[in-house]
Design a protein around this nucleic acid. Structure first.
Lengths: 333, 333
DNA sequence: GGATTTTTTGCAACCGGTTGCAAATCGGCT
DNA sequence: AGCCGATTTGCAACCGGTTGCAAAAAATCC
């Protein structure tokens, strides 16, 4: 059925190795031989089987891409970047969609069975089990959007959530706010914890009251909306720092539904700068994550790691940026 | 390094075939043998290499998933469904992210090289070149969200866009509108063409004026916004049928920015019922596509097609539903 | 208990490539 | 022309599984 190495070799009247060599990078073939082979290959419309090659070389060019945040539209942007960047490098993503019920071991085994060259984890809310499972399987792993730790077991690429929290506290203060709330994602999410930590630390330092703290049950619009409703029932604040744009939009709509004017009566700061943040229904002031840089860096890292599995663990934190739009009142105190 | 069939065979003191058989569905192994093998396998933490198996069986359990609409947040929902449904069946998606510049042939070759069992195309705006390229490569293909044709060359799973267009025309008429506009996606998109065709046909029949027609340059918020602005500059209508929710939201915001009240002064109908459509900033009346059914059907179809490549081409169109929210004035004429 | 049928097992070839090694070829030099 | 070292080429083993076939073992029957 399919045309193989052997067919080309026969047609060109050369050995199988000769054909193999013309199709593998940096092998020793004379110019004449290469041309003879390529001609035969062209005539037969041959292209080498990556499966067979993988078996022989134990390299697959497959990269496992593990994620569990398919609910958040920002993920579509992230996903787009990953898949494009990988395929530009000749790598293929093998997707794992983690659901709450799925068993870590099973997925690790599966990726192992496909003999992926490496794994990129794209999630800040990943059960620890996964990470250690990969470690046990000796698969190179890069954890993107993960929490930084001084002595990491894995390569981590992400942002400094603590610094971001501080940046927001400072910005709110600079805009004249003195009494603000934090509305995070799930309490168990490390990124939420870190953002809050930074937020509180800077607040304490500069004299910003930030004792009202709420957690949404998920990084979703509805969770944000619900959490904001209950926050409004109990407290009165001047501004809210939300741990995610989606949560923030839900919160803004909850406030507007009560007739609260934004930013005149209540200010908001989001997180991520997803494309919707610039929509004129929201015009959200928010923290922009350098998604593109994070993703490119992680792919570079996994590439290097595949070459040299012993490469020592690195933590790369990339800088974020405050994008000012219309959800904070203007700077005059 | 990795533990192989042979290791297990030696440890269990049996032949390699015996080990292979205990790990392949429906092979002939006695209970005693199976247990002996499984015990050895467990002790060595063995799991069969899918790469090697693929080489031997020429089945990979890989399904190419080809898409080019990574800009639209609705795609994240679609993607979630695809990846989950595939992995529940023991299949793995191999993602192809088509950009405008990418060469059809190259991707077809690539999927061929990975020896994918089948390909699912998830796009309504795909250059014809891709489809024929796959056909030439004799890879089973299911085209989802594609245009129905009486004598299709491929399996198609999607919706009846013409019927949807008719449904919207009727709904607008029933709500008392008499003078409406169509604001579609790109003019080259077959789904846009079909929706318009149905819309115009029914309009003509029931006496709904629908001669104002505009196309957004893409299925994006900004494209919708721009198109709506220019529409408002030139025409006055009572309601707008948008070819996509995202376009619709852009259009609504363009209208609101001019102080137009929705639905009192201007009605809107969207398409897709993406999760944002229910946000209280929009509360969009829209057509819901049965994404889940479409996707499950397409996977079933590709499964069957892999078993039997000669399976005759089918077109499956699934019914849509009008979801009424708050962007049309109430029914009283 | 022996003949016959059915099930289980092992052998060996194969899937489509890669690669270490030794033989063959080439080019340059005296 | 003859010799030497560098390149190029082919042989054959290997990557880790599957599977048709025939022999061996077990189950069935009389």
């Amino acid at each position: 059925m399919a045309v193989t190495l052997k067919d080309v070799a026969e047609r060109a009247g050369v050995s199988r190795s000769a054909v193999s060599r013309t199709f593998t990078e940096g092998a020793s073939v004379s110019k004449k031989m290469r041309e003879k082979v390529l001609k035969a290959a062209r005539e037969l419309d041959y292209s080498p089987s990556l499966i067979a090659r993988s078996l022989a070389t134990s390299r697959t060019k497959l990269i496992g891409l593990v994620a569990n945040n398919y609910q958040n539209p920002v993920f579509v942007e992230v996903f787009d970047l990953y898949t494009r960047a990988l395929q530009e490098r000749g790598l293929r993503p093998l997707i794992v969609n983690l659901t709450d019920e799925s068993d870590p071991q099973a997925f690790v085994r599966m990726l192992h069975q496909y003999n992926v060259d490496g794994v990129i984890i794209a999630s800040s809310t990943l059960p620890q089990g996964y990470l250690t499972a990969f470690k046990d399987a000796r698969v190179p792993v890069v954890h993107t959007f993960g929490r930084a730790s001084p002595n990491p077991d894995f390569h981590i690429v992400g942002i400094d959530n603590i610094a971001c929290g501080e940046m927001v506290a400072q910005a709110l203060f600079d805009h004249g706010y003195r009494d603000v709330a934090f509305l995070g994602g799930p309490k168990t999410s490390t990124s939420t914890q870190d953002r809050l930590a930074g937020f509180e630390r800077r607040s304490a330092k500069i004299g910003l009251r930030s004792s009202v703290i709420r957690y949404a049950e998920g990084y979703t619009y509805n969770a944000g909306r619900r959490a904001m409703k209950s926050l409004l029932d109990e407290f009165e604040v001047e501004a809210v720092f939300c741990g995610d744009d989606l949560i923030c939009m839900g919160a803004m709509d909850a406030a507007r539904d009560r007739g609260i004017a934004i930013p005149e009566e209540l200010g908001f700061v989001g997180f991520n700068d997803m494309s919707m943040a610039s929509w004129s229904a929201y015009r959200l002031t928010t923290i922009r994550q350098p998604f593109k840089d994070i993703i490119l860096t992680s792919i570079e890292l996994i590439d290097r790691l595949v070459e040299n599995p012993a490469y020592p663990s690195e933590v790369k934190l990339l800088p974020c940026e405050l994008i000012e739009r219309n959800t904070l009142r203007s700077t005059s105190v």
